[in-house]
Amino acid sequence: MTSLEAYSTVRTGTFPERVAAGFGLALALVLLRLPFRHTVRAVRWARRAGRRPLAPQRAGALVDAVRHTGRLWPGRAACMETSLGAVLAAALMGRRLDWCLGARFCPPPVEYHAWAQLPGGGPVGEYTEAGWHHHTALTI
């Protein structure tokens, strides 16, 4: 993950989206300290709470709001934390995003990656225009 992608300096989203982003990221940071099965169970529960998918532009703003909130955290707030935070923030707003774990390819680097995705759509807030290809290993 590039530093531009990890730490957004632009404050985006409406006030409710920014509040949900803060709570979602805080909850994600706690859940990622637990065994992974508990994290998966919590995400599945959160997806049931969010029944309606987000509009694509609102989903992008929410992911950017979570990235911006991650700047305040003194520890690691990279792709795993921000994508999980976005999924949980969407659930707090009564909306739904998928949490995807997999790999991101662009010759020559190949890296493990996590991202938020619209149900039935593509990655949200990711640089897919530059030739990056996302291959999903697990969708929750």
Rank of each mutant, 00 (worst) to 15 (best):
R51T: 10
V87C: 15
L84N: 09
A116L: 03
L118E: 07
T128I: 13
A90D: 06
Q117N: 01
R48N: 00
Q57A: 14
A78R: 15
G13H: 09
A28W: 08
V10A: 14
G102V: 10
R67Q: 07
L101T: 09
L88P: 01
R41I: 02
G22Y: 01
A114E: 08
L72R: 11
D64T: 06
L84S: 04
V66K: 02
A42N: 06
E81T: 09
T128F: 06
G122V: 09
L88K: 08
E81F: 05
P53M: 02
H135I: 11
T39H: 07
V19W: 08
P107T: 13
V124C: 01
G102L: 09
F23A: 13
L25S: 03
R67D: 01
C106D: 10
A116P: 04
W73E: 04
S8Q: 13
P107W: 15
L25W: 03
L25A: 04
T128R: 14
G50M: 05
G24V: 12
V110E: 03
G60D: 07
E81Q: 12
R11G: 01
R44C: 09
E17C: 05
A89N: 04
A77F: 01
G24N: 07
G102S: 07
G121Y: 11
F15M: 11
T9D: 10
T39I: 02
A20G: 06
R67S: 00
G22D: 03
F23C: 12
